[in-house]
Amino acid sequence: MKKIVIIALAFCIQNVFAQANRFVYQVTMKPDAANKNDIKTENAYLDISQEKSVFYSENRVKRDSIMQKTFQSGGAISFNRDQMEGLRSNINYSVEKDKKNQKTYFKERLGRDMYSYEEDRPLNWKILSETTKIGEYKVQKAETDFGGRKWTAWFTTDLPYQDGPYKFSGLPGLIIKVEDSQGDYSFDLMKNYKIADFPSMNQFGNTIKVKRTDYLKQQKKFQEDPVSFMTQGGGGFAQTRIGGGGGISAPRGNSRGGGNPGDFRKRMEERVKEDAKKNSNPIEIQ
């Protein structure tokens, strides 16, 4: 009987450690430098396990689910374009923190491929004596300069995680709130709950590992010539590629005569440039 109890206890402990904790943040952004009254708000998840954490958009999970059902049905189930448009996100990236190696990885799609780099700038926090209460948590103030912005964070030691949204981490507790001094970006913890495991993200195209400085060059190149990133060349950048195909190539026109490659290029360039204008105030300005 004692042996059965020990086995059952071990199984329960294993299940607890197999779980992850999800922290839901409300992200408030002013991505358009020319129109600070255009405020975007959406939710993002910070999923934390013993080994790692991942920060990503809630809308990405919803979009992935719809796309996955469409692909699995072989096209028998079509997605609602208006619904997909409503799930567009200003958080088109994910941030993964490897707890064992103390490394942070940023990933974002440019065209058909996913680009990934290791963050090479440390977060140097100044912990202040000021405390207050946010919701149910007693929090303490900390400040840092990162990505060309001055950030103020409030962390709590009530939760045993030295983590936070986006690339923020390294304080003696979980970051409950962090915002920049200009009021352009704010991350506010709304709620948290346990999940069985990290969700699987749809991976189309390749994952290309680059240095951060090279990623910034590729990002600029994509904004100037997005069509080149929809072809096999992926913008012409030779780096480590992981995974198989599955990317989306530029169409060569259609049988109904609805578009030729020139029209497609023009429409795509106009859309990317318009998006670039609307996102002229990025979270990192340096």
Rank of each mutant, 00 (worst) to 15 (best):
Ile127Asp: 07
Thr156Asp: 15
Leu159Pro: 12
Asp145Cys: 04
Thr152Glu: 14
Val139Gln: 12
Phe155Lys: 05
Lys138Asp: 06
Gly135Glu: 02
Thr156Tyr: 14
Ala153Lys: 07
Val139Ala: 14
Ile127Val: 15
Lys141Ala: 15
Tyr137Pro: 03
Phe155Asn: 13
Thr132Gln: 13
Gly148Glu: 08
Thr157Ile: 02
Phe146Gln: 00
Tyr161Gln: 05
Thr131Asp: 03
Asp145Trp: 02
Asp158Cys: 14
Thr156Phe: 13
Ala153Asn: 10
Lys133His: 11
Trp151His: 04
Leu128Arg: 08
Phe146Leu: 00
Leu128Lys: 09
Gly148His: 12
Leu159Gly: 12
Thr157Asn: 06
Phe146Trp: 00
Glu130Pro: 08
Ile127Ala: 09
Gly147Thr: 05
Lys141Trp: 14
Arg149Leu: 12
Thr131Cys: 02
Lys141Ile: 12
Glu143His: 01
Thr152Tyr: 09
Phe155Leu: 12
Trp154Glu: 09
Thr131Gln: 07
Tyr161Asp: 11
Pro160Cys: 10
Gly135Val: 03
Lys150Glu: 15
Lys138Trp: 00
Ala142Phe: 03
Glu130Asp: 14
Glu130Ile: 01
Thr144Ile: 10
Thr152Ala: 08
Trp154Lys: 07
Phe146Ser: 00
Lys150Asn: 13
Thr152Pro: 10
Ile134Gly: 03
Lys133Leu: 02
Ala153Asp: 10
Thr144Phe: 10
Ala142Cys: 08
Gly135Trp: 01
Glu130Val: 04
Ala153Val: 07
Trp154Met: 07
Lys141Arg: 15
Tyr137Arg: 03
Thr157Arg: 10
Lys133Met: 06
Ala153Glu: 07
Thr157Leu: 01
Ile134Ser: 06
Trp151Ala: 00
Ile127Phe: 06
Thr157Gly: 04
Thr156Asn: 15
Lys133Ile: 12
Thr157Pro: 03
Gln140Ser: 06
Ala142Asp: 06
Arg149Gln: 06
Lys141Met: 14
Tyr161Pro: 11
Thr131Tyr: 00
Thr132Ile: 05
Val139Leu: 09
Ile127Gly: 04
Pro160Asn: 13
Asp158Pro: 09
Asp158Val: 10
Ala142Arg: 03
Pro160Ala: 09
Trp151Gly: 01
Phe155Trp: 14
Thr144Leu: 13
Leu128Ile: 08
Ser129Lys: 11
Ser129Leu: 15
Thr156Glu: 13
Thr156His: 07
Ile127Ser: 09
Ala153Trp: 02
Pro160Thr: 09
Gly148Ile: 10
Asp145Met: 02
Thr156Gly: 14
Asp145Gln: 03
Leu159Asn: 08
Val139Trp: 10
Gly135Asp: 07
Leu159Gln: 12
Glu143Ala: 10
Ile127Cys: 13
Tyr137Cys: 03
Lys138Arg: 01
Glu143Arg: 00
Phe146Ala: 00
Gln140Leu: 01
Tyr161Ala: 13
Arg149Lys: 09
Gly148Val: 08
Tyr161Ile: 07
Pro160Phe: 03
Ala142Trp: 09
Gly147Cys: 00
Ile134Met: 05
Gly147Pro: 07
Thr157Gln: 06
Tyr137Gly: 05
Glu143Leu: 06
Pro160Gly: 06
Gly135Asn: 04
Ala142Leu: 05
Gly135Leu: 01
Asp145Arg: 02
Trp151Asp: 01
Thr131Arg: 06
Glu136Arg: 04
